[in-house]
């Protein structure tokens, strides 16, 4: 352990703003990119599901009209 106490660790030998902002920016990028990749995957899957459901519904509707067609 290079530091005696938690406050010494947070103070970073007087360089706190520099060290923590550099680490903060890096953490923000890593977390943001990871979160974005996850959200992107979910969005793609959700859109695909929605599209399949819609197409199936439309196909069903089309079938109904052709079935009803002759009766008219």
């Amino acid at each position: 352990m290079a530091f005696d106490s938690l406050s010494a660790f947070l103070a970073m030998g007087g360089y706190a703003p520099y060290v923590w902002s550099a680490y903060g920016a890096t953490a923000a990028l890593l977390l943001g990119v990871g979160w974005h990749a996850r959200a992107e995957r979910r969005r793609v899957l959700r859109d695909l599901k929605r599209r399949i459901r819609r197409e199936r519904y439309q196909a069903g509707a089309a079938n109904n009209t052709t079935e009803e067609g002759p009766r008219r």
Binding site: A2, M12, G13, Y15, Y18, V19, Y23
Partner: peptide, 19 residues
């Protein structure tokens, strides 16, 4: 951040190297 020794010249600002 916490365990590696500080640099003799740059002190703890040296820890930025790890990112």
């Amino acid at each position: 951040l916490a365990f590696s020794p500080a640099d003799y010249q740059q002190g703890d600002s040296f820890r930025i190297i790890y990112v």
